[in-house]
Design a protein around this nucleic acid. Structure first.
Length: 235
DNA sequence: GCGACAG
DNA sequence: ATCTTGTCGC
């Protein structure tokens, strides 16, 4: 396994990153082309950081959408490619996430990101950015509402309310467990908002967060700690 | 002007 | 994101 260097031409300043978002955001596809909820494959991606050493580990875990069994996984280690700036998270994570996706032995199907898609100050969050760069269907499932507003969804699992930027619905607050804090779902690329929510519900039979996210989070943390094999299949 | 702000 | 033990509850 090799370390992902910061790509040539990667934005180095906030101004450059904003320009890239401005250029790419028009390429988001809102039509549905991904697998229907509960069918095909679903892949979770997540990253973990080692602050002191400027290192980031990304994991991609592929599940069978019907059974939620793990069918493939891959990881990548990279240099942190951007500081954390709210609204520019993608520039910090994407190079290493792309390498993890490339290392998969199969098609990822729908990609589920930890963060936002169109629920973003410029409507181009991590999930949308990753979708445009890969052409894959993507959604974002975040753990908090960022700067957006919402009414509290009703208590039962499956209840949802609009996530609002002013009066524009940029995503949904979706209850995945009875009486538990909702998650915040938004469209990334090639998926509709109702289906993004349906996918999220199909991925949460037991916990608040999608099984995809839970697996990817666990894997990249274990690799960062040296507890898991960074290149399964290559002893 | 001052906070708040995905991970 | 990350720093961190035990503890209450199903």
């Amino acid at each position: 396994m090799t370390t992902v260097r910061i790509p040539a031409g990667w934005p180095a300043t906030e101004e450059q990153a904003l320009a890239v978002q401005d250029e790419l955001r028009g390429k988001v596809v809102l039509d549905e082309t991904g697998p229907p909820p509960g069918a095909g494959r679903v892949t979770g991606v997540d990253v973990a950081y080692d602050d002191g050493r400027d290192v980031v580990v990304a994991a991609a875990v592929v599940l069978d959408a019907a059974t939620l069994d793990v069918v493939a996984e891959a990881t990548a280690i990279g240099q942190v490619s951007f500081p954390y700036v709210p609204g520019l998270l993608a520039f910090r994570e994407i190079p290493t996430v792309l390498a993890a996706l490339d290392a998969l032995p199969c098609d990822p199907g729908l990609v589920v990101c930890d963060g936002y898609g169109l629920a973003h100050p410029r409507r181009f969050g991590l999930a949308a950015h990753l979708g445009v760069l890969t052409g894959l269907p993507t959604i974002g499932v975040a753990k908090n509402p960022f700067t957006f507003t919402h009414d509290d969804p009703a208590a039962p699992r499956g209840s949802a309310t609009p996530l609002l930027a002013g009066t524009e619905e940029v995503g949904r607050a979706l209850r995945t467990r009875d009486g538990v804090k909702p998650v915040f779902v938004s469209v990334g690329h090639r998926v509709t908002l109702p289906n993004a929510c349906a996918h999220t519900l199909a991925l949460t039979p037991a916990y608040r967060l999608p099984e995809t996210t839970r697996h990817a989070d666990s894997l990249c943390r274990r690799v960062l700690k040296g507890t898991a094999d960074p290149a399964p299949g290559h002893p």
